[in-house]
Amino acid sequence: MRNLKSIALALVALVTFSATAQTKKINVSKSTINWTGKKVTGEHSGTIDFKEGNLTFKNGYLKGGSFTVDMTTINTTDLKGEWKEKLDGHLKAEDFFGVDKFKTATLVFKNISTKNKTNYTVTADLTIKGITKPVTFDIVINGNTASTVVKIDRTKYDIKYGSGSFFTDLGDKTINDEFELKINLAW
Rank of each mutant, 00 (worst) to 15 (best):
E43L: 09
T41G: 07
G37R: 02
N34I: 08
D49F: 05
I48L: 10
K30W: 00
G37P: 02
I26L: 09
K24N: 13
W35M: 04
T41Q: 10
G37Y: 05
T41W: 01
I33G: 01
N27M: 00
K38S: 15
N34D: 14
S29R: 09
T20H: 09
D49S: 02
S31D: 01
F50H: 02
K39N: 05
S31M: 04
A21D: 00
A21R: 13
G42Q: 05
Q22E: 15
N27G: 00
E43I: 03
A19T: 13
Q22S: 15
K39Y: 08
T41Y: 01
K39H: 11
G42M: 03
G42F: 08
V28T: 15
T23G: 08
D49E: 12
A21Y: 15
N27Y: 07
H44D: 06
T23D: 12
V40D: 08
I33Q: 02
K38N: 14
I48F: 03
T47K: 06
T36N: 03
N34A: 13
T20P: 00
S31P: 05
A19M: 14
V40F: 08
G37T: 02
K24C: 11
T41H: 07
S29W: 08
K39A: 08
G42P: 08
I48K: 09
V40M: 07
W35D: 06
T47R: 02
N34V: 10
V28S: 13
W35S: 01
T47Q: 03
T32G: 09
W35E: 07
E43A: 11
I48V: 11
